[in-house]
């Protein structure tokens, strides 16, 4: 059933002690895709011991509720590990999705990467 190769869905960059994550995909949809993105995000906390994670949504144009579930789990994992998860560069349309679901209250969201980095 697997039609897509298991390629890396995240681009990582270390800025000081913060791991900045950029999404490769413009659309975070598709069960299989979301599953892989989730695994790669969780791996940062579980195996790579990253504790300061910044998700940059600059490339993302579309996401569904299934993707929100992964972000909630990631947030919980980071908090349990004593770390911090911050998000930035979220398109207006996607920000509205966060607002409707009230997740804008749960996540720490900043307009750009500069401001987000200062939040750690």
């Amino acid at each position: 059933m697997s039609s897509q190769p298991r390629r890396r869905r995240l681009e990582l960059e270390e800025v000081g002690d913060v791991t900045v994550v950029n999404f490769v995909d413009k659309k975070i949809l598709d069960e299989q895709n979301i599953q892989i993105i989730g695994e790669q995000l969780f791996d940062l906390v579980d195996n790579q011991q990253k504790r300061k994670i910044l998700l940059n949504f600059g490339n993302v144009e579309f996401l569904s509720s299934a993707a929100l579930g992964k972000l909630i789990t990631l947030n919980k994992k980071v908090q349990t590990a004593g770390g911090k998860l911050v998000m930035c560069n979220i398109a207006r349309s996607i920000m509205e999705v966060f607002e409707i679901t009230k997740l804008d209250k749960m996540f720490k969201i900043f307009p750009d990467e500069q401001a987000a980095l200062q939040a750690f």
């Binding site: 569904s64 509720s65 299934a66 929100l68 579930g69 909630i72 919980k76 999705v97 409707i100 679901t101 009230k102 997740l103 749960m106």
Partner: peptide, 17 residues
């Protein structure tokens, strides 16, 4: 799913949207 108690649960977020 917007109830703070349920915020972390996978519940009805798609329906809400």
């Amino acid at each position: 799913c917007t109830d703070p108690e349920n915020l972390e649960r996978p519940c009805g977020r798609g329906l809400l949207l």
